[in-house]
Design a protein around this nucleic acid. Structure first.
Lengths: 234, 234
DNA sequence: CCGAAACGAGAGCACTGCTCTTGCTCTCGG
DNA sequence: CCGAGAGCAAGAGCAGTGCTCTCGTTTCGG
């Protein structure tokens, strides 16, 4: 139920968006640490104190950008997943790699926003509760691909070592009650490893090491899917 | 050939070390972005401008800390590797997991220093050439474990997809000419994935997801070693 | 032994996040 | 319809930052 809003409310929405846009521009140009409220305000032709009407502090602006970034990468990943499901309904490994490639593409295209959400947390700053929903989207998508494959039968995650059994059952019960514990553990593992691959590429650790990044990542994503058990592991 | 040094040179070394120590303390307390030259100087009882006699800029101080951090994690990993080789000479998978555990332990114990070297790169800051040597130590160690296993025979990395063959051969030729291309690729993959696991734990992404982090990581490191081909993949 | 280099101290510049006060303007309820 | 109150932009100001420059002093090496 979105009611018609007065000029004031509309202006507030537009100005808030303009602030975030300009902040994103500075983020892309200089990085998060050099994001300056005063510079944003200056560029928008207002005075710095006016900006505090829209964001109580610099951290709150960053939080808004973080949520937007989680939503952005989540959206492209969900779209890629949906496309893969519709074009190759039974190929669960393809669904998996489609999500992986979407995440990587977005990260490479928006390195600073990626760094904001998957890089070192900003000092003293603890993510507020608002971020957990958007932050979980990609992870839930990976669970969804695994669930699709599991329901179709034939998912074979690696066996669980004995010591990990209790943790695995707790994890499955809390996050995906319909999945076998070994699959839940393999998923969390692959989730972290996927972002390890993406982070190393975005943060430049592959400099002078990996040249054909597309081919390298494609192969890695496929291996990751096989390791989860979406296809045989040769 | 270390000659006896004058009081001045000795003082310079001590003061440089004191500055880095205090900087590390602030790093651990507040994080890299809040590391303040003035605060370091204040704590050391000197004036901020005096500090510039030792480090030309804040970035240079950070660079020194980065190099020290790379060296620290490299040293503990090398020590763990040597220990594992001497206690279980033939168990190459154990050598691998020993290195992995050492890296993780250091990262958990020094999260801010870890973030400095494996988190988002500081804005506008590009790592100078001095860092590449120390930065490579852990990677070289992983290569060394794989080489040990390869020379003992029976290393079976996953097969290479066709498209990746040229890249794999280039990579092997440049980084480890004595290893099969497929092994070189698997190593780089596992290298990035290992730090993905560690980063997710250190940066808090496992919050409320993984509880028994020790068991989880131990199993993940072992799977990583198997995926490289150091032991059969069940 | 004496000039040059290194050093610590201090003032100062341009910048930051953030607060407080001052007026103006829009909105909404009586 | 109109006035009280909320929302708003602006400016001054505070404490802090990285960094530069200058000025005496100390130390070292040829």
């Amino acid at each position: 139920m979105t009611t018609v809003q007065g000029a004031r409310a509309r202006a507030r929405i537009e100005i808030t968006a303009a602030i975030k846009d300009e902040a994103r521009r500075q983020l892309a140009a200089e990085g998060a640490a050099k994001l300056s409220l005063r510079a944003v305000a200056r560029e928008l032709g207002m005075v710095s104190s006016a900006l505090y009407r829209y964001f109580p502090s610099r951290d709150d602006l960053l939080t808004a950008l973080i949520i937007d970034a989680y939503d952005a990468v989540g959206a492209v990943a969900e779209r890629a997943h949906a496309d893969a499901v519709s074009t190759a309904p039974g190929d669960h490994l393809a669904h998996w790699t489609a999500v992986c490639r979407a995440v990587r593409s977005w990260a490479v295209a928006h390195p600073h926003e990626y760094a904001l959400i998957y890089g070192s947390p900003v000092p003293g700053y603890t993510a507020p509760q608002d971020t957990v929903g958007p932050a979980a989207r990609v992870g839930l998508l990976l669970v969804a691909t695994a669930r699709g494959a599991h329901e179709a039968g034939g998912v074979t995650p690696p066996p669980l070592p004995d010591g990990l059994a209790p943790e695995a059952e707790r994890l499955a019960a809390e996050e995906a009650a319909d999945l076998p514990p070994a699959l839940a553990v393999a998923l969390v593992r692959a989730w972290a490893q996927l972002f390890g691959l993406v982070s190393f590429e975005v943060f430049g650790q592959f400099h002078r090491i990996v040249e054909d990044r597309d081919a390298f990542f494609a192969a890695a994503a496929e291996r990751l899917g096989r390791e989860v058990g979406l296809a045989p592991r040769p």
